[in-house]
Write a protein that binds this DNA or RNA. Structure first.
Lengths: 404, 404
DNA sequence: TGTCATTTGTTGTTTAGAACAACAATAGGC
DNA sequence: GCCTATTGTTGTTCTAAACAACAAATGACA
């Protein structure tokens, strides 16, 4: 039940792998592009027309793709049939947070179909959160059309995850330690379940459907109420590191300051750029990103402005360090950091310039997140979808029973 | 003539790709392990016995591998034939530096067969350096046994490289700008030529034959007279970034210090840890790493000791930042940094602990380089070898003419 | 409006490369 | 010396992609 089947050493390749790889390639193209003419599939993959015909046929018979009528008006010659990911395939997302649990229903094309947020007590246990999630999922599931194929459940948790085991190693804000959440929810729902870090999930979503479309080298930084997390894509693949804890971009030291972050490290990005500091200055507690952004824009207090500009400069500094190391195509800023960028992006870029090599700045794009708060939901659903994409023919989809 | 053929989008896969991939896999195993019994090849690759037989047969007929007699004593059953990379395959390495150019002859098993260092004037032009290199190569080439297969030439340059174009974008210490060195040397020698950054090359060498064997996530940091460079391996592949300038680990900001590095950035690793500073304190100018290490060990001056310990602490800090970001299996320290680690590794590790997340520290190994100064030579030779490994059947090897 | 060139889908055939099966070769254990 | 276990070899089978020939559908143009 590991979503990183693609991580396996791809040593020997036999005919079976070949077919699996080609099916996977075609399905992935559909998943990411939404819908593609068959003729494009042949040119992109370099495979023969008849081979594409065969592959698409298999995907259709698996219920993963649909062929719609040819769209005319694309130049001379016979119009090509358009292939699209099946609207019948869905996945559930779960995002446990400190005061509520959110559950989403996501289509195979990456669109959020439903979304429900259910408040819990502060710092719920894993069992409590997952029980809420299981109930919401059961609710959504009962309304699914007969014949719908469920790919599974993806859980996005703010903390360190052992992805291959489906275990939350440590989630400081939730105070969860060594919780086998994937197995717990799989048992309650009967659906295959995966778990990953929330920022990593959001990163995947932005890369496939948001601000990072088409980039193979991407740095994503997200700031929420629970500190700063992130994700990095290198050579087109999520960077996970030797033990799965790579990409902790919030905890890089960028200054000699003695201020500590939530993990006790001094002078890190997370220590210097704190959403709570601004909330305090504005004398509000508990605000959505939207509310905070309005507050920031209408602010007149010079003291608050100074703090704001310092946070923007520090963020730029961290981006500079990351750009120097990763030389990415773009840096995507999620949550509160997106707000800072929108407020004074030029100031942030200035600061980036001072802490990065010129070569890393050429062509570097800094952008605010495109998917916003849905990124985590979409990204979590990519976990079950990834399993389907990795091996379409063998994917174990759960079919919603036909009404009788 | 790009060595990163493996970078190409591996979209559609046909039968040809399949064969190429399997040939490549087997040859790569031989290249990295030196010699492997055929039975191991079957179990590692998962391919059928008869398929391995066929693949090895093709590699042997291509002159890339040899089959030696079965080695008895490995348990019951018929002993397996041992396959090894051919001793007939070689590559040349070139390493232009500020006061000399080094040329090496490297075997297909990664062993340095010959090495020649030829002094030049200070800051030679690219043409001057390459002329020296071409002469040394011609010299070595004339002594090669008839029938030897030459894979090509790999040039390792201290600077920023556009690998796919074979161009040195900017090498500050040599004062080279936009030099098409690969084409220049290819024209002079008639051999296919590649170029890469010297630290990147050393990183590859350490990963395949040195301190990083078997690791898929590795950070390599090298300090020489010309600043601090490095290389990072993520998911088993060299990290190159969007435009090829990734992995500049010497230029990450780790302090608020105003001291600048060679690129004008403040408070970076390269700004704080300078080999020259120690040479100055010891009142020597121009020393090999070995000489400097002796000087460091016999040092009694408390002032020098303090600087030394500060440099060790700063190095640890940078390692901490990198470990938090990359979560590598190991960090390998080359050149002068290896010296610092050997002098007081415990102090360095202490400093690392204070600037990295606990999760990144678990199981993290910090090591000094194993290949030392030969790493660059071996790594540069990997450039032509990589082309052979990527597509053994199509590799264009140059055969040394039979004497007549 | 009809013809033609162009592109794509379809179907039956070919082919390459890996798997498979049967057998021979060679080792250690008893 | 016989047995078992493992590996190499050879001829056959099988599968997935390519290929070839033809049908279908479009736009361009006279």
């Amino acid at each position: 039940m590991s979503p990183n089947t693609q991580e396996r050493a791809t040593l020997g390749q036999n005919r079976e792998n070949l077919r699996q790889h080609n099916l996977s390639t075609v399905l992935r193209l559909l998943h990411e592009a939404g819908s593609v003419p068959r003729s494009h599939l042949t040119s992109i993959t370099g495979l023969n027309r008849s081979t594409i015909s065969d592959l698409v046929g298999e995907l259709v018979s698996l219920g993963l793709a649909v062929e719609s009528e040819a769209v005319t008006g694309g130049g001379v010659g016979r119009p090509s049939l358009v292939v699209a990911p099946s609207q019948n395939v869905v996945a559930f997302s779960v995002n446990p947070d400190i005061d509520a649990t959110t559950v989403g229903l996501v289509g195979f094309d990456g669109k959020v179909l439903q979304r429900m947020r259910y408040p819990t007590k502060i710092q719920p246990t894993a069992a409590e959160s997952l029980q809420v999630a299981a109930k919401l999922i059961a609710n959504l599931r009962s309304k699914l059309a007969p014949g719908t194929l469920i790919a599974g459940i993806g859980i996005a948790v703010p903390g360190q995850i052992r992805v291959s085991e489906g275990v939350v190693r440590y989630a400081p804000h939730l105070n969860w330690v060594e919780e086998p959440v994937a197995a717990m929810l799989a048992q309650q729902t009967g659906l295959p379940t995966w778990v990953d870090n929330d920022a990593t999930a959001a990163c995947t979503a932005e890369r496939r459907f948001g601000a990072g479309i088409g980039t193979n080298n991407l740095v994503y930084i997200h700031a929420g109420s629970g500190g700063i997390g992130g994700g990095v894509v290198v050579n087109g693949r999520q960077m996970r590191g030797a033990t799965g804890y790579a990409g902790e971009v919030g905890h890089i030291q960028i200054s000699s300051s003695k201020i500590k972050d939530y993990s006790g490290l001094e002078g890190t990005l997370e220590a210097l750029v704190k959403r709570d500091d601004l909330l305090e200055l504005f004398k509000i507690d508990n605000a959505t990103d939207e509310e905070l952004e309005i507050e920031i824009i209408k602010n007149k207090d010079p003291k608050a402005h100074k703090v704001l500009m310092q946070q923007i400069a520090d963020t730029g500094r961290a981006i500079g360090v990351l750009a120097t190391i990763f030389n990415p195509q773009s840096v995507v800023l999620g949550g509160f950091l997106g707000t800072l960028f929108r407020f004074d992006g030029e100031h942030m870029i200035q600061s980036t310039r001072q802490s990065s090599l010129k070569s890393a700045q050429d062509g570097l794009l800094i952008k605010a997140s495109q998917l916003g708060t849905t990124a985590v939901i979409v990204g979590a659903a990519e976990l079950p979808f990834s399993a389907v994409l990795a091996n379409p023919a063998q994917a174990k989809l759960t079919k919603v029973a036909t009404k009788r």
